[in-house]
Computed example of a mutant assay.
Amino acid sequence: MNPYKKQDLRKFIDSFSKEEIERENREQQEGNEKVYKDFLTNLKNGKCFICGEKMEDFITSKPCFHWFTYPKGVKKKYFKKYLENPIGFFRIDSYFRWLANTEKPLGNINDLKDETSNSSFLETTYKYKNIEWAFSIGHTDIEGHENSTVGEKPHYHLQMKVNDRIFLKFNDYHIPFSDEDLFTIELYEQASDRVIITNSYGHGMSSFENEENLELFDDAMTITDDFKNASFNRQTMIQAPEGETISGELIQKALEESKRTKKPIGKIMERLMKGAKITTILSPGDGVPKMSKRNGKK
């Protein structure tokens, strides 16, 4: 069981003044920015920002997050001892998110709540180069499996694929949460109305489920012919103002501008035909990785 369940974390939050909270948030944001810049600089130079070794190097005596990028020489057996101890769920989650977003922002991270199983506390799938990682946390995993010889402590499950072949299976390991993880989880459980857990520089497709973001996404979109790797599908229905029709000439003009500027036709028609009723439907594109599911949770 999570030991922080016995503590009143809402009272803990209330013990801080507004000024203290604002200062902590500001310092946290500044710290995140510094670490992220360090991550990008090292990655560009082929180095791991955590251990300082080359990303392509595997050293058995130096367990590190970059082992999950499948460096030459890494084997499944080396993960057993590494994952028997807490490595920090929220830390490795951020690491996967940062890597995924260096290739394709948002679209390489499927953390859609709509695709998360009802029996799960959390499910996320990430893609980076030829690698796919996926987390699965059932509601019973959060508490630990009582009277069980395996997974009795609060834990989570991880799957890793390389070239579409499973390298680490979900049920290979019951990875224990760190103390920091357990505090964060219980803080959110007790005070989700007071606490926001964000993914600095690691936003995924769940951002798309926030209606406040839809207009921002729509304005920033450009069209592509590479449908297989597209992050979003955009469908637009255009209805001319009452008593008017949409001429073929206007549609052709919009098509030509769209081809030239890469802007969606619907956005162009919205400008060219004032008063038209335009309805846009956005949905995840074919380039978003499918959510990997854990069967037979235990």
Score class of each variant (00 low, 15 high):
219 D>R: 13
193 D>E: 12
96 F>D: 08
217 F>Y: 11
112 L>K: 06
271 R>L: 04
31 G>R: 12
7 Q>C: 07
149 T>P: 09
262 K>Y: 04
288 V>G: 03
152 E>T: 05
194 R>V: 06
149 T>W: 12
262 K>L: 09
266 G>C: 03
150 V>H: 11
148 S>C: 06
244 E>R: 06
113 K>C: 05
130 N>T: 11
242 E>L: 11
288 V>P: 09
34 K>M: 10
256 E>N: 15
153 K>L: 14
203 H>Q: 14
279 T>Q: 14
141 D>V: 07
73 G>M: 03
16 F>W: 08
270 E>C: 01
43 L>I: 09
277 K>V: 13
126 Y>C: 01
141 D>S: 14
269 M>R: 02
164 D>K: 15
206 S>Q: 13
32 N>M: 13
247 S>K: 09
35 V>M: 13
213 N>R: 10
72 K>V: 11
251 I>Q: 09
279 T>Y: 09
169 K>W: 00
249 E>W: 02
2 N>D: 10
228 K>E: 12
110 N>S: 07
76 K>R: 15
134 A>Q: 08
276 A>V: 05
189 E>L: 11
107 G>P: 08
90 F>P: 05
108 N>K: 01
36 Y>A: 09
193 D>A: 07
25 N>A: 11
274 K>S: 13
100 A>Q: 06
80 K>M: 04
242 E>V: 13
262 K>I: 00
126 Y>M: 02
85 N>P: 00
69 T>S: 10
39 F>R: 06
118 N>A: 06
242 E>G: 01
208 F>T: 02
50 I>M: 06
264 P>D: 00
44 K>I: 11
162 V>T: 04
110 N>L: 04
30 E>F: 08
148 S>T: 08
149 T>C: 07
233 N>L: 13
217 F>R: 04
284 P>R: 04
142 I>R: 07
170 F>G: 01
37 K>R: 15
286 D>L: 15
43 L>S: 08
115 E>C: 04
95 Y>E: 07
222 T>P: 00
12 F>Q: 10
127 K>M: 07
157 H>L: 00
290 K>V: 10
29 Q>N: 10
226 D>F: 09
34 K>G: 01
228 K>S: 14
158 L>D: 00
144 G>M: 03
106 L>A: 03
195 V>F: 01
184 T>Y: 01
153 K>I: 14
57 D>S: 11
228 K>W: 07
278 I>T: 03
150 V>Y: 12
268 I>Y: 05
12 F>V: 10
253 K>R: 13
97 R>L: 02
169 K>R: 15
24 E>V: 12
44 K>R: 14
256 E>D: 11
27 E>T: 14
35 V>D: 12
96 F>N: 06
8 D>R: 10
199 N>Y: 12
298 K>D: 06
185 I>D: 05
96 F>V: 07
7 Q>P: 06
156 Y>K: 01
270 E>P: 02
184 T>H: 04
